[in-house]
Design a protein around this nucleic acid. Structure first.
Lengths: 233, 233
DNA sequence: CGTTCCCTTGACACCGATCAACTCTGGTGG
DNA sequence: CCACCAGAGTTGATCGGTGTCAAGGGAACG
């Protein structure tokens, strides 16, 4: 089943007709290769993309060639809601793995939002959660040391994957390199590596073979100061 | 004139009736003292607050007693749009100065959004810009050193104040302590102070008597890697 | 005229960056 | 099947930006 629908129905009751309209909106999908951009800064896409499978990342590039990832996107996330109301994208979204995305025609989406209040509310909902996650990243990067930052991100991703049914008893697929983690957390890959080792040595979590295992969720969340309220499940 | 209306009309054309409805929504206003919270984490406010005058800040408190500011709010900004669709606030908003806020009844706001598509679009617009600013803060805190961070924030605030007509040739009122700047930028007040001194010594900007003077906008923006695109003016 | 914030400055400690080398793994082509 | 190679992970040594601690100065306010 469509990950977006699944995610929404965790929080908002849809009638059959809503669900049908939503799934029809996501009708046409295509696959994009790893390291390809799904949308790029400056674009004004006429379709809004929904991630159906795989991992993607929002990022902004800096003049010195580095980049900062501002969000990890998992199935059920919307890549470029911005495109509906703003003139152009102010950041890019890239595929971290091979992904499949659905394309919702922009005009049709706007019309649906106008004619089906519950779906409009659902779109508001996912947008606001997205913003809440961004704010929590500011807190994470601004106030926590490397180890807690990684731990907090692990908790967030596990919780979000759980919502769309992609978490199996304390483990998720996390096909993200240490380099990319560094770009997301404002740290160097070297330091990511050292901090992962400490988390592993302390029996809190383990990232190996592109899968993240939560070894002690309670202590991990505590050490990260993780409070899932902002995810609004 | 209402700062929210002014801000929206910079980007979206309103007919008289839209403007009238919007100003009526902002009809009842009150003033709140400095250091008082406007909304608090966990609240489910039945009114949505618009900042009409003064400065406020979104923040999240951490267990160790510190806090991270995730946004500065200026006239025309909405404090708690979250309240319209989510169960509860995931962060607090506090008054940095004495402020005056308008209270829009939640239900009435939702009804207006449903019946007046242009106003709905306007609400989307301010929400998306808010999110874009949050993402740019992630980049700022994640990738720039102290001096560039401060410079970038200065550029952002000047640009935003300009939109609502509160910037006068390179200077804005900025009634924010160095302590609060530290809470916003993930730095200690001591280091904020040193970095402000360097910015002053290099003739880039000056913060004194609660007013920010941009001395050399070009070099300041360059040193900060500031690209105003994300503000979508 | 004292008190309270806020700003300022110095000395020192430490977290994370940088630079560099090596290992491991999976994929590719001879 | 094996040799090679590129990307990713790992680890050590050293450097630098920022935090911490501490003390003092200045302005607003009762």
């Amino acid at each position: 089943m469509n990950a977006l629908v699944k995610r929404i129905e965790r929080s908002i009751a849809l009638v059959d007709e809503d669900r049908r309209v939503l799934e029809e909106l996501c009708g046409s999908s295509r696959t994009i290769l790893r390291d390809r951009d799904i949308v790029r800064e400056g674009d004004r896409p006429d379709h809004v993309h929904v991630l159906l499978d795989g991992w993607a990342a929002r990022y902004k590039g800096l003049i010195d060639g580095s980049r900062q990832i501002t969000a990890f996107l998992i199935p059920g996330d919307i890549c470029d809601m911005e495109a509906t109301v703003l003139q152009h994208m102010d950041h890019s979204v890239t595929a971290l793995t091979e992904v499949t995305v659905a394309s919702m025609p922009r005009e049709r989406l706007i019309e649906v939002a106008r004619t089906r209040p519950v779906l409009a509310q659902a779109l508001w909902f996912v947008t606001m959660v997205d913003a809440a996650v961004a704010r929590s990243w500011i807190v994470n990067i601004g106030r926590r040391d490397a180890q807690a930052r990684i731990a907090h991100l692990a908790c967030e991703l596990h919780a979000r994957m759980d919502v769309v049914g992609l978490a199996t008893n304390g483990a998720i697929d996390l096909p993200v390199t240490q380099n990319e983690l560094g770009d997301a957390l404002g740290l160097t890959p070297v330091h990511i590596n050292r901090s992962l080792k400490r988390l592993r040595d302390e029996g809190l979590m383990e990232l190996r073979n592109r899968t993240l295992a939560i070894l002690d969720g309670g202590r991990l969340a505590h050490s990260a100061g993780f409070d899932p309220g902002y995810l609004h499940r």
